[in-house]
Design a protein around this nucleic acid. Structure first.
Length: 220
DNA sequence: TTGCCGATTACCT
DNA sequence: GGTAATCGGCAAC
């Protein structure tokens, strides 16, 4: 199975939150040893640059590690976390604006047995349901940091089935703590009910006011 | 140069 | 529900 045409470059220049939503249902492809691996994206998180306390680019921070966040839209930012797991992000916006969308979960579509072997997983739902699992299954490492998402080894292609707004659930982001701004922002998006969404936290739909507190919301 | 800690996961009780 | 694994980045000394 081979990938169709990649998403147009303009896709990545929409508002980052819109990109995070629009990526749900799209297909991420990775060519490994001549074989195409693919997952349908089912969970994302938006990171909104300098004003986002949870972002690696908070306060405008820039270093060799997060340099790829400053590329123009349509590239990938891969970093190592907890000393052992990689996380992959889709870079958005024009060059110099460090916004990105973290890929948190994927549903295996093609190359499933290769990914299963890479993960040592038995159930399909354990293959790519989490940011570290997704990068391990698809061999997304630091060597791909900064690569194009419309290239010969890596690409994202359009949805292969319809996704309605009502299929998309929203919550606060996972694993971000203590950040003065950003912690409560509803920037995690996922396909409601999809078993390949990460188990990181009860997948509760974000309900404004449920905890007597409204997320401040990005003021971008 | 040192020390702390993370956009996580797997395995334990 | 709790925590060890594991190491690069970054702030502070």
């Amino acid at each position: 199975m081979r990938p169709p045409r990649p998403l147009a470059r303009e896709f990545y220049f929409q508002e980052t939150v819109d990109v995070a939503r629009a990526l749900l249902g799209c297909i991420l492809w990775r060519r490994l040893d001549g074989e195409w691996l693919a997952v349908r994206i089912v969970e994302t998180e938006a990171y909104l640059g300098a004003n986002d306390g949870a972002s690696h680019a908070r306060r405008g921070h820039r270093s060799p590690r997060n340099e790829s966040m400053y590329l123009d839209g349509g590239h990938i930012y891969v970093y190592l976390t907890y000393g052992m797991h990689h996380c992959a992000n889709v870079v958005t916006q024009e060059e110099g604006i460090p916004e990105a969308v973290l890929l948190r979960g994927g549903e295996p579509v093609t190359g499933v047995e290769t990914m299963r072997a890479r993960r040592g997983a038995t159930r399909d739902r354990d293959i790519a349901s989490g940011p570290g699992r997704l990068t391990q299954a698809m061999a997304l490492g630091r060597e791909l940091d900064g690569a194009s998402l419309a290239g010969p080894e890596l690409r994202i292609t359009p949805r292969d089935r319809e996704v309605a707004d009502t299929d998309i659930a929203v919550s606060t982001r996972i694993g971000v703590e203590g950040a003065p701004d950003g912690v409560l922002w509803p920037l995690r998006f996922y396909l409601a009910g999809n078993p390949h969404v990460s188990p990181g936290r009860p997948a509760g739909t974000f309900v404004p006011g449920a905890k007597r507190r409204h997320a401040a919301g990005p003021t971008k």
